[in-house]
Design a protein around this nucleic acid. Structure first.
Lengths: 252, 252
DNA sequence: GATCATAGTCGTCTCCCTGACGATAAACAG
DNA sequence: CTGTTTATCGTCAGGGAGACGACTATGATC
């Protein structure tokens, strides 16, 4: 069967972004309000069409820059100097967009808490929203007053997959540092784990684990008291990308 | 920006399959010989176009049935009664197909060793080939005489990603049983791990681990001597899908 | 039929990691 | 100065994994 335009159906291909950050001890996702039908006025994940001369990851990176203003990823699978960006999964159910056949390649972005919350760019009305609130809305539809409307399209599912990916990936990789500023303390890193997993971790065991894993953290020599209490050592992300043995997530 | 056909470029969307099995203590992949240019005569992964009313996983399942004749997956994320099928990743570099812009959603299939090697269907010239030979060919280009030509398109990369996914996933899931017949022995399961990882495992520690993990293996009561030696107990896959703690892959 | 090779199964011992938790250190607020 | 907060060091018991020894039950070979 030759590749003749008449023998295959044309698809629109988009990228959608699950952009996660930790703000005020909560895992938050970037969402934008839709200005047009369908799902007009509802929250959705940022995203857009892939251009015809553009790779998928390049498109994701471009959309990220457009939506967040400043962020951008770097090289392959990297997160230094920007946010971490990786492909999440692809969604292509025939009726996921009522207008036409769209296949969407979702990307997962892990970003440090941005000083300027979603400033700049063509971001119409973008905001950070706690991930669990968005997911609750997409599951149990409207239980109490504070309930939000679920995300547009199948974005609730995409967000859920992205959050789950992030939760599992920080277990066995050093990716949690992507949520931290360039220099951070052990306590700040622990609060990232606690926010993403939604559990409390023992500060002493956590400290032993992360400082005892070779290549995970590199001391910078400096200290800070920005969290109050006794001054804490500052660290940078080390060379290690995988954590072996992994950080164990309490079952609960 | 409305979804107007004139505002977005049309893409062809295909599914490609990384079909893995264990044959004669080696991890093998299903490859088909290309009958047309480009890459005419070269080996490639099986795959084809997604139809315009068809979901991605449905398309993958259909292609699998067409290529292998008998296999088919079942329900969501299931592998009982057939092969395990899961989405792997999506590849969409602008020039990956010289004829046109194609985005390919790759699926990973784990199948037991089929009695009829790739019989039936429209499978022109399909065969099982050891995965490491295919990957060697795609990396170090033509070193010695036995060298094969690398896979067509970016299928070498896709295969590599699929193999790596399989290798890591049997660590923390019961997926290795997807390579086994419905009833199997602990030794057969161990040989699966050894083939996929390319390492030797201690039979005694392996036995303790798999029989000690609740829900991993269900004894059927029967025994077999098909491997020679002392009769071994037969097991079926249990309810557990995740292995916690995981099966540790020797570092080496 | 005795012997051997092959696989399977049960135990033991030690090391390391983890979870639980006590204790100390260094900042700030009153 | 005292209490509060956060960081950091130490100790101890339990569980899992690697390294192996020992025994069992088949088929193959002489």
């Amino acid at each position: 069967m030759p590749y003749d335009p008449s023998t295959f159906p044309p698809f629109a291909v988009t990228v959608d972004l699950v952009v996660l950050t930790v703000r005020k001890d909560a895992l938050c996702s970037l969402v934008v309000r839709r200005g047009e039908p369908p799902y007009q006025g509802r929250w959705a994940l940022p995203g857009g069409f892939v251009r015809d001369d553009e790779g998928l990851e390049v498109a994701a990176s471009r959309e990220l820059a457009e939506e967040t203003g400043l962020l951008h990823s770097q090289a392959t699978e990297g997160h230094r100097g920007g946010a971490h960006l990786e492909q999440l999964a692809t969604y292509g159910a025939p009726q996921r967009d009522p207008r036409m056949r769209v296949v969407s390649v979702a990307y997962l972005v892990l970003a440090p808490d941005l000083p300027s919350p979603v400033a700049g760019g063509d971001a119409r009305s973008a905001r950070w929203a706690p991930s669990d609130a968005l997911l609750d809305a997409s599951e149990g539809l409207g239980r109490d007053a504070e309930q939000q409307a679920p995300l547009a399209f199948d974005h609730g599912q995409i967000l859920q997959d992205g959050v789950e990916r992030a939760r599992s990936k920080i277990e066995y990789s050093s990716l949690a540092t992507a949520f931290c500023p360039p220099e951070f303390t052990v306590g700040e890193l622990r609060r990232v784990y606690e926010a993403v997993w939604g559990v409390a971790l023992d500060p002493r065991n956590f400290h032993r684990k992360v400082t005892g894993t070779p290549g995970f953290l590199m001391p910078t020599g400096g200290t800070t008291t920005r969290q109050g209490g006794r001054p804490a050592q500052l660290f940078r992300t080390g060379e290690a990308t995988v954590l072996n043995p992994p950080m164990l997530r309490p079952e609960a």
